[in-house]
Nucleic acid binder design. Structure first.
Lengths: 214, 214
DNA sequence: GTCTATATAGTGATAGAC
DNA sequence: GTCTATCACTATATAGAC
């Protein structure tokens, strides 16, 4: 009757989750090639052969992790509401995306490794799902610009900028902390304040570029 | 009399350069662990043992590449002139940094892999050289803000934002191109225009945040 | 200086006892 | 289902002929 999950027992489900959690940790720290099954098995508290009882290969574990990631990653952009107030919506998107970097830095790095390598696994999803979603939301932004409700900038690059700025704090966290120093303040609230200023000023409807002497 | 370089003959110098160029290509594409000596040797047009005649190990090649990189990478920030016009200086910095991403995407990715991994090799330089330089230039920016010549934002995060935005176009180029699509315009001029708008508006002295309904 | 051949270590994956 | 032992393969690095 009920559709059965592949993993039947409680222990099996827990072990699968433990493996995925361990693998996320290791892949995010070292990348796919840098990670070894030994490390993952130890972090998961299992023997290597036992780990391979749950997943057929290292590749399969990695694929499992990536599979759901893009959807989670894009949820904040999906939530951008065409019926909402433009600046509120954009600023909320920025805040949510930054929050995800703070709460899920390992997922961010897993994603960063994948893109850096040329997206061998989720390449098709980038040209498919991702491209479609960005086109849709860029159209919403463009409409808001047409209506004069936010300043006019290239909407797709606006989205790129939000990705770059928010993910930077997760992916380059080591550098951020090295520069701020051991006594440095918590970077996250500073980052949030900075990004709010930045996008507040960028999108203010009356905004015009400062004179640039090129 | 003349201080001799270690590599004496012309061929040796050329081979060394060929190896470094090949290694940059491979490391930037696959990361340190993902790269193999076979790939590097083939790209350099040498046999693997011959390659190891020039460098004692894979690690040594990688170290050699990283060694000079930080200085090159930070040259544009070093060039920020405290005596110049604030907005001109910042916008020039942004343009130079973006140009470096366009002209040296492999170096950018080599650097990105290193930071993602937790900067195991150039960690000390980040807390030393880099931190000092950023502190110095942040002080310049802060002075300009005190004088009301550019708008007040957190100067260090301002620098972070320039790094994040410019390097994004090199490190995540695959994603940028996937989203823009096969027919998409050349992203680089678009990126330059976008970044000029963004920093022009962010730094305009009279700029105030748009009202944000949090 | 450059090659062929090979030593050595590490890693993904499997066999088979329990 | 889980373990010990091990295979097969790959990759770094070296030895020694030329």
């Amino acid at each position: 009757m009920a559709t059965m999950r592949r993993a039947r027992t409680r222990i099996q489900q827990e072990n699968r989750q433990a493996i995925l959690a361990a693998a996320l940790e290791v892949f995010a720290a070292q990348g796919f090639r840098g990670a070894t099954l030994d490390q993952i098995a130890e972090a998961a508290g299992l023997s290597k052969p036992n780990l391979l009882y749950y997943f057929p290969s290292k590749e399969a574990i990695h694929a499992d992790l990536l599979e759901g990631l893009l959807d989670i990653w894009l949820a904040p952009l999906r939530a951008l509401d065409p019926a909402g107030d433009p600046r509120t919506e954009v600023l909320r998107y920025v805040r949510r995306k930054l929050e995800m970097s703070r709460e899920m830095p390992r997922e961010s790095r897993l994603f960063a490794y994948e893109i850096l390598q040329g997206a061998p696994r989720l390449g098709p999803l980038l040209s498919g799902t991702l491209r479609t979603l960005v086109a849709e939301k860029a159209a919403v932004l463009a409409r808001w610009m047409d209506e004069g409700r936010i300043a006019r900038v290239h909407p797709v690059h606006l989205i790129f900028s939000i990705w770059a700025l928010t993910q930077h704090y997760a992916d380059f966290e080591v550098q951020v902390r090295a520069v701020l120093g051991p006594e440095g303040a918590d970077p996250w609230p500073e980052a949030e304040a900075f990004l709010e200023s930045l996008y507040g000023r960028l999108l203010a409807p009356g905004a015009r570029d400062a004179l640039t002497s090129r």
